[in-house]
Amino acid sequence: MKDPYEVLGVSPGASDEEIKKAYRELAKKYHPDNYAGSPLADLAEEKMKEINEAYDAVTNMRQNGGGAGDASGSSSSYSGNSSSSSQFYSVRVYIQRNMIPEAEKILDSTPEGNRTAEWHYLKGMCAFRKGWSDQATTFFQTAVNMDPNNQEYRAALNNVTNQRNYNYGGYKTGGSTVSNTGCTCCDICAAYMCADCLCSCCRAGC
C-alpha cells in the first residue's frame, strides 16, 4: 500500500485539521458525481477508495488504533442504480461493460412507439460514453421532459448541465455581461444541486 500521507498530499507533520481539509478537497475532486456516466467512473471510484483508505489509515494511526475513520463506507453507496425490472436491461448491461455499439444496436432497432423516457436516457448514456456530449444533453433533456419524476434521468441531466457551466477554477465563462445579471435559472438550479449534495453528504456521514 502507498504511504497514506502521500496519497492525501500532506506531510506526516501536518495537523489533524490540515489532513481533514486535504481529504475533503480530494474527496470533492474525485466525487462520483463528477464522473457520473463517464467512461472513467470506475477509475475515479478506485481513486476515491484509495483516498478513503488513506484517510482511515491516518486517523487510525493518530488515534493509536482506536476508532474507525468517519469516511469509510460512503463510496459503496454510489454504484449505479440499475433496475432489473427495466425493459432495456440488456442495454444497461452492455453500457456497464462499455460495449456501446451493441447497446446502440438494440436501442436503434426499438420501434418508434416503444421509445420511452428510459430509451432516451440510455441513448443519452451511449452518446455520453462516446464523448458526444451535445447529443447526450439533448437525449437527457427529452428523458426528463417525458418523465419529470425520475431521479436517475434528472441526475444525468444535472450532471451535464453542471459541465456546461464549468466554473471549477472560479473563472466565469460566458462574458462579463452574463456574469453580472445576478440570479439566473441556472444559478437556482446549481444552488439547488449544491444543497442537495450537502444533504446527501450529511446522510452519508451519519
Partner: peptide, 22 residues
C-alpha cells in the same frame, strides 16, 4: 448561439478536467 457555443465548449472542458484529475 453564443450561449450554446459556450455550454458545448464548457462541457468538453469539464470532461477533460475530470480525466485530467485522474
Amino acid at each position: 448561439l453564443r450561449e450554446y457555443q459556450t455550454s458545448v465548449l464548457n462541457q468538453s472542458l469539464a470532461r477533460a478536467h475530470a480525466a485530467y484529475s485522474l
